[in-house]
Simulated scan of single mutants.
Amino acid sequence: MSAPIRRLFLAGFTVLALASAAHAQGRGPVAESGIDGFGDYGQLYQDQNGALYVRRGDRYLPYTGRAPVVRPAPQAAPAPQSAPVYAPEDEDPTVQRRQAGAPPAEGLSPIEAAKAKAVLRAPDDGPIDYAKAYGPITDDVFPIQAFNYKKMNPAFLRQEIAYNGPYEPGTIIVDPRAHQLTLVEPGGRARRYGVGVGKQGFSWSGTATVNSKQAWPDWYPPKEMIARSPKLASEVDKLQSGLGVAGGLRNPLGARAMYLWQGNKDTLFRIHGTLEPFSIGKSVSSGCIRMINQDAIDLFSRVNVGSKVVVLN
């Protein structure tokens, strides 16, 4: 991508859906002027000056074909201007601190840029309104359905509680027996969430740190897990770091994941969202600590890389 086009692209663009008789009749993407496949499933890109570009691989080329009839796509919600948070950098332990609202780095694909913006979601510090807290989320990278909290044991719903224990604010405490995770807050307060934990033989306890954070992460199950599950073997794909499941609505890590390390070693345990929210309060996982997606997003927005995690015995 040339420097002028890159500057225009990063300055802001609108995704445009190409409309034509052929497209309206369901015959798939339209090819004009010898250009087939308008980038992402028939979409053009328009910068703030009105110039059109078409995506070819990882490049954005000026579109010189006949001017299409276009309509702007729905605009994403602006990134909240709140306190600085940490953004993931491909599970790299040297995660860079980013200010809320900072533009995404050059070279990010649209989906990667969306994930970076998702990390900047500000926490909701008002009173916990369950209808809102567990309602649908439509402005994230992927839509998240509402969770029917009325069918959940109240002990496993998000709560603000008093705290006078020994751990400092910012510490995450996981109690596998109670199936609860507590984030210690300043002023003698804490925020508690219900979690699902490892079944017998897969549990883990100890002290770790949050080494990195990912929005809609790819999942790379261990080879042993793939070997144990023929069904899983048929579902993994070859991704950039090996066999796995790409981040999205069918990924068992859900909307957010926090990666737990001890020193310079990955424990292979995560705090993450889940595709099975009604497994919260149970011991069913392969050791990781799973949360309702809405709760995983809330915790993720409050926790910094380097935070201490204590998993009780």
Rank of each mutant, 00 (worst) to 15 (best):
D295V: 04
A131V: 11
T274R: 01
R290L: 00
S229E: 12
G65C: 13
A79G: 12
Q46R: 15
V236T: 05
P222W: 14
G101W: 13
G28N: 12
I173M: 10
T138Q: 13
A255F: 03
T64R: 15
L243M: 14
R250N: 11
D58S: 14
L108K: 08
D266C: 06
W261S: 13
E89Q: 15
P80N: 06
S285V: 00
T182Y: 06
S229K: 10
K238Q: 13
D218M: 06
V174A: 03
D140V: 03
D298W: 05
A208N: 03
Y45F: 15
V311T: 03
K238M: 10
V95I: 10
V119C: 14
P84F: 09
G126Q: 03
G281E: 02
L312T: 04
N293E: 01
Q180N: 04
S279N: 02
P166Q: 14
A83I: 07
G194A: 09
P222C: 14
L243N: 09
R97M: 10
P110K: 08
V311A: 07
W219K: 00
P84E: 13
W204I: 08
S229Q: 07
P103K: 11
G187R: 14
Y60P: 00
D58C: 05
L268S: 04
L299E: 05
T209M: 08
G244S: 13
R189C: 09
L268V: 09
R270M: 15
D47V: 14
D47M: 13
S109P: 03
P221S: 04
L275H: 00
L181F: 12
S285G: 09
I111M: 11
N49M: 06
V15P: 02
L183R: 06
G247N: 07
T267P: 09
Y86K: 00
S241C: 02
D266T: 06
V303R: 01
F142N: 08
I271F: 02
A162T: 13
Y163L: 11
Q240N: 03
F13A: 09
R27T: 12
P154N: 04
D125N: 14
M152D: 01
A257Q: 01
S234V: 09
A257Y: 04
G101S: 09
F278E: 01
A76D: 14
A19P: 05
D218P: 01
A102V: 12
R7I: 09
G170F: 09
K115W: 12
G135C: 09
N148W: 04
V95L: 09
R177V: 10
F38D: 02
T64V: 04
R27L: 15
G107N: 13
S285W: 01
W261V: 05
I137Y: 07
K223W: 04
Q46C: 07
W204R: 02
L108P: 00
N153I: 02
L183S: 02
V195Q: 01
P176L: 12
K151R: 11
G12D: 10
S33F: 07
A22W: 11
S203R: 12
T267D: 00
D58Y: 11
T207L: 06
A122K: 10
V85R: 04
Q46F: 11
D140A: 15
I289N: 08
L253W: 02
A233M: 14
A246K: 15
G188E: 10
N153V: 03
T64S: 12
A100M: 07
N264M: 08
V303I: 09
C288G: 07
L253D: 00
V174F: 02
R6T: 10
